[in-house]
Design a protein around this nucleic acid. Structure first.
Lengths: 226, 226
DNA sequence: TAGATTGTTAATCGATTAACAATC
DNA sequence: TAGATTGTTAATCGATTAACAATC
């Protein structure tokens, strides 16, 4: 997949100036969240300083990050909220329609299925998978639950490109591999284990216990905030 | 709180060599998770290379990180799993007893209450808070649910030092401030909003939609892994 | 001893900060 | 014009990598 298509039209897009670092990408999500809030409040424009202040980021960093999207700001004026939203969405791949499969409809999985945030960001959870016969065949919200045996089939028929893993750590490696083999290109992993998957696939990890541990460490050190 | 006690006995502890960066602290959580797994499998010792390999971290980084804890390794041999676990727990503040209050017993809150991981890391969820009268007075697992009005009282009587916020974004700022004022020293925030709290308090944010967005970005960019 | 592995250094890489000319 | 704010540079800071002497 790495260099499959000879030239993936970067040259058609003159405004994407510099490549986007991970640190910048993380902040772009933050900006987007705040910009949407501003839009709901009918705010039309904002300066790098104001945007930074509301998120605990310096104005210089905001400008640098936004410069990655092209020359969107107007000197002496600031940025258009609407225009920033469009451009961040575009660059973050939100223009695409992402079909998501949830694997594991236990406590956490159920909570994630009911979580509104994914849909608001444009992700569509198209199905869930579980191995408990009492859950299979049922629905949570309007998402159907299929049996683990139907994983590959579901990925295929529902054109799933992202998987969410909300299953025990011991089951995670095998299921992750099955998702990858079935053609899923990214996994959001809630199982507390480092996945090693053969093939070309992205993994993002969310370890809830580790997050709480980091918080405790900050408190113990008296670091405050972060 | 910053410089309250004149000298907080760093000098009594000759082995803590260098200060611990955030990047290192995050990895220490990872090491701890893996080391506990090794311990369950009765593995007594491990080299920086093997530990790094299992987590996707280079051996040099592992050695550097572990050197922050003191001289724990033996040249030509490696590290003692048991000894590393003890030292990481100590430095991460896990020796302490952390009392945690969950605010918001909705979908996500309930899932977090039932999540085993926190307890396994030594955190004790001592109570939950909600404003829905149908939930108040009930229990989830063996954790009692109190009314929002009893927040301050609960923090006091149960000696809560960490709060978990699983409530809508619009309610989060006010509740976070109440937690801080009541004496909580850290907040794990699941609400998609940047908290600004008066007083000395640590905040760690987990934005589930943003995590999925980062994953989509990686996929869109063809970055693979991370 | 010979092989393995640590602890630590110097070199590299990347990200942030401060500053300011350009310009609305 | 004068005031505000961007886009971008150079300087600083911090983290990672590569290498290797020390030593088990």
């Amino acid at each position: 997949m790495e260099n499959s298509s000879p030239s993936v039209g970067r040259e058609n897009n003159p405004q994407s100036a510099s490549p986007i670092s991970r640190a910048t990408a993380v902040r772009l999500s933050l900006y987007l969240r705040e910009l949407r809030r501003l839009q709901r409040e009918a705010v039309a424009g904002i300066s790098s300083q104001d945007l930074g202040n509301s998120l605990g980021v310096s104005d210089a960093v905001v400008r640098r990050d936004l410069a990655c999207l092209g020359q969107l700001g107007r000197r002496g004026v600031g940025y258009s909220v609407q225009e920033l939203i469009c451009n961040i969405c575009e660059i973050m791949g939100m223009a695409r329609d992402w079909h998501v499969l949830l694997v594991g409809a236990g406590n956490l999985g159920t909570a994630l299925l009911r979580y509104r945030g994914f849909g608001e960001q444009g992700f569509r959870v198209v199905a869930a998978i579980d191995n408990d016969p009492r859950r299979v065949g049922g629905k949570i919200g309007d998402v159907e639950i299929f049996h683990l045996d139907q994983l590959e089939e579901t990925v295929e028929t529902r054109q799933v490109s992202l998987g969410i893993l909300a299953i025990p750590a011991e089951d995670a490696p095998a299921i992750a591999q099955r998702l990858a083999t079935a053609g899923v290109s990214g996994i959001l992993n809630f199982a507390p284990i480092t996945l090693k998957i053969a093939g070309d696939i992205c993994v993002a990890n969310v370890d809830l216990a580790a997050e709480l541990q980091q918080l405790a460490f900050s408190v113990a050190r008296g670091t405050s905030r972060r």
